[in-house]
Design a protein around this nucleic acid. Structure first.
Lengths: 97, 97
DNA sequence: CAAATATATAATGATGTATTTATATACTTA
DNA sequence: TAAGTATATAAATACATCATTATATATTTG
């Protein structure tokens, strides 16, 4: 599969978008991500793997913790642009009715 | 579901990305899209509906044809940025090995 | 080295998505 | 108005994804 498509699929999930939001201000270990997301450790771990497989995240081991961070900060520009596109679409829909 | 997520899901499919590429140079009717994509008319119609439901495409009826076009051209900026992010990721992977 | 902690993986079931086939609708033209 | 063309929709199946549960691995600490 083309990597662009793989990235898009990795981004197309609410939990994973939330993880990315949490990582905006830098790397976080799994033990911080799990309580923030509020689902099971196993579930978070699997979402992290999907983001890592898509080359969106990398990880780094330190002691018994594993820290995840965004590989390419440009991904946030992309997400923010999409947010803008979505907001404009909503505005247009509201104007019509 | 938040519209941003809905748009991301709509973009996360190879057939739909191909449709969007085909629409880069302006609106096209279904009868042009179907042979370009190379799958059944029914299948294309369903993919078009998903893109329309996500407010990525609109349609316009003219005679017995229906023309589809992109609502907000910014979506291409977004897709191109993603393409760049993917290319950079591939470059980094190749450099390492 | 045993226990505790942090994380990953595997297997399952549930849900969602894509493709196919068949049929319906809407418009045009003879 | 009947036939043809363009498109959409519905139903069925196949396939992919998500969440859960249980278990495994790796690291630290007592």
């Amino acid at each position: 599969m083309h990597l662009k498509l793989k990235i898009l699929k990795a981004l197309s999930d609410e939990t994973r978008l939330n993880i990315l939001e949490f990582l905006r201000d830098g790397e976080k270990c799994v033990c911080e991500i799990v309580p923030y997301i509020g689902t099971s450790q196993s579930n978070v771990s699997q979402h992290l793997r999907i983001l890592k497989d898509a080359n969106v995240l990398t990880d780094r081991k330190e002691g018994k913790s594993i820290y995840y961070s965004v590989v390419d900060e440009d991904i946030y520009q992309c997400l923010d642009d999409l947010e803008g596109i979505a907001e404009n679409a909503v505005k247009r829909l509201l104007e019509i009715y």
